[in-house]
Design a protein around this nucleic acid. Structure first.
Length: 465
RNA sequence: GGGCCCUUCGUCUAUCGGUUAGGACGCUAGGUUUUCAACCUAGAAAGAGGGGUUCGAUUCCCCUAGGGCCUGCCA
């Protein structure tokens, strides 16, 4: 770890779908580790398999990273675009006897593979020791000549992991159409990009061994590996790109803030004593590989909401108003004019304390934006009996003549009115709430009256009296 | 079939041989109360099983069970 080179990490998704939650966490860890050490975080798209890569998927991944605030350094590297360089390295490998041409047909490979499988060992091609000049005039693949030497990696999470030489096969480096394969391309690209630390899902742990063989054959320095356990669904079932995991935009739509999701993801598989809540600066200051966990973690939406609530409270009210308004704009039956927006903005300092997500915030602003006349529903509807209506009528008169419309003054006025009526505050508060909010969730009534303003309050009272 | 990885409250986790096994979310009870929340207080809740090593194991080793990954001309 005492590397003099500045640290470079990378996130290398394959563009076959959206940026799922597991990939997002991998990217987050990689970015944090780089930032922590003043290094760089790079992005490479692993699009060597043209049949499975799409531009839409690339765009979705970039969008997802942007939204989550995981911005990379430098240009996005396309693995496919580097195919020439990959072939060049393969030529070098062949030249030094570390790779060879293999003319086995798919059927022959299948037979050999089955035989190797039955013996409990990995595939070895008969061409690894054959004279290439004997090769037929037919398509061939280039295979890596798996070394007869045991392999070990020092993983940042898993510790030392070893494999016997027979566990690794003569893997294909170049397909019969000349296209490079994943394990070769990863090694070449990581090397060329100067990647010092590879943080990725532990589904790649064995690839760490294979790739180490290739690094060694090339005489290149093997990067530090850190294979992190995968994320599972709430049911404990695997969650991965191959099983339709949700993209990060789904979490955005559920109303999570990017910083909230970042914080939740950070604590999923990584810990720092008992500390749960992190600002971005704290994350960067605290992140280390030692805190990574070895076992898979399940997603817990309650916890995610709770963590997000912390960030909702910290978020600027103007920003929250913008985010909320964008969500509201498509909803019918709401007062979405400038006045409505001003009410929302004016009450945001208070309302953001009461909502864990933007979706909950939508419920919190409903009492203001709902259209008149507001129909009382639920428990509060029962509060509007004849006595209460008569009292509200007198309250209306009192409020109409009340000049100071500040929250504090209104609180005093309501209390004074209750005193004058000779009743407890409950006799005033409940019917007033029913009339003004219709029973929708809302803060303290004096606050509500202050935000809505005299005209709206009197109008809503008139609607029920 | 072979190899590798993992296993503390329901969930995320702390512990780096000696603790009443701690915290957080959720849950339960109580408080506050003008709705819903928020908030405050209290409580229930865990070392997969079996062997070792040791004065002493959640912690170190082995076995078993369970889960996962790889074993592709996918990444």
């Amino acid at each position: 770890m005492q590397n003099k080179r500045s640290i470079i990490t990378r996130f290398a998704p394959s563009p076959t779908g959206y940026l799922h939650i597991g990939g997002a966490r991998t990217a987050l860890f990689s970015l944090l580790f780089a930032r922590r050490h003043g290094g760089q975080f790079k992005l490479r798209i692993e699009d060597t398999d043209r049949a499975r890569s799409t531009d839409d998927a690339v765009a979705a991944i970039l969008d997802g990273l942007h939204w989550l605030g995981l911005d990379w350094d430098g240009d996005v590297v396309s693995q496919f675009a580097r195919a020439e360089r990959h072939r060049e390295v393969v030529d070098a490998l062949i030249a030094r006897g570390a790779a060879f041409r293999c003319w086995c047909t798919p059927d022959e490979v299948e037979t050999l593979r089955q035989a190797a499988f039955d013996q409990g060992r990995a595939l070895r091609s008969p061409w690894r020791d054959r004279d290439p000049s004997q090769g037929p005039d037919a398509p061939y693949v280039v295979r890596f000549k798996a070394p007869e030497r045991d392999v070990a990696i020092m993983d940042g999470v898993q510790g030392e992991v070893r494999w016997a030489a027979k566990e690794f096969d003569d893997l294909v480096l170049l397909r019969s159409d000349g296209a490079p394969t994943y394990n070769l391309a990863v090694v070449v690209d990581d090397h060329d990009m100067g990647v010092t630390h590879v943080i990725r899902g532990d589904d790649h742990l064995v690839n760490g061994g294979r790739q180490t063989q290739i690094y060694d054959a090339l005489g290149w320095t093997v990067p530090h590996f850190a294979h992190i356990p995968l994320i599972h669904g709430p049911d404990g079932k695997k969650l991965s790109k191959r099983h339709g995991a949700l993209g990060v935009e789904a979490y955005r739509d559920m109303g999570y803030l990017p910083e909230g999701l970042r914080n939740y993801l950070l604590r999923l598989g990584w810990s720092h004593g008992d500390k749960e809540l992190f600002t971005d600066a704290e994350m960067i200051a605290a992140f280390d590989l030692a805190g990574l966990n070895k076992s898979p973690a399940r997603l817990d939406f309650d916890k995610m909401a709770s963590v997000n609530a912390f960030h909702m409270k910290r978020a600027g009210s103007a920003r929250l108003t913008d985010l909320l308004w964008a969500r509201l704009e498509t909803r019918p039956g709401l007062r979405l004019d400038e006045t409505g927006r001003a009410w929302v903005r004016a009450s945001m300092d208070v309302l953001k304390e009461r909502a864990a997500t933007l979706a909950e915030l939508e419920d919190q602003v409903y009492f203001m934006l709902r259209l008149r006349p507001v129909a009382a529903a639920g428990q509060t509807a029962g509060a509007l009996d004849a006595d209460a209506l008569a009292r509200l009528s007198r309250l209306r008169t009192a409020l109409a003549g009340h000049d100071d419309w500040s929250e504090a003054a209104l609180a005093g006025a309501l209390k004074a009115f209750a005193g004058a009526e000779g009743v407890g505050f409950g006799k005033i508060g409940q019917p007033l709430r029913a009339a003004i909010t219709g029973g929708a969730p809302a803060p303290d009534m004096s606050f509500v009256l202050a935000v809505l303003g005299r005209d709206e309050v009197l109008a809503r009272l008139d609607d029920v009296i």
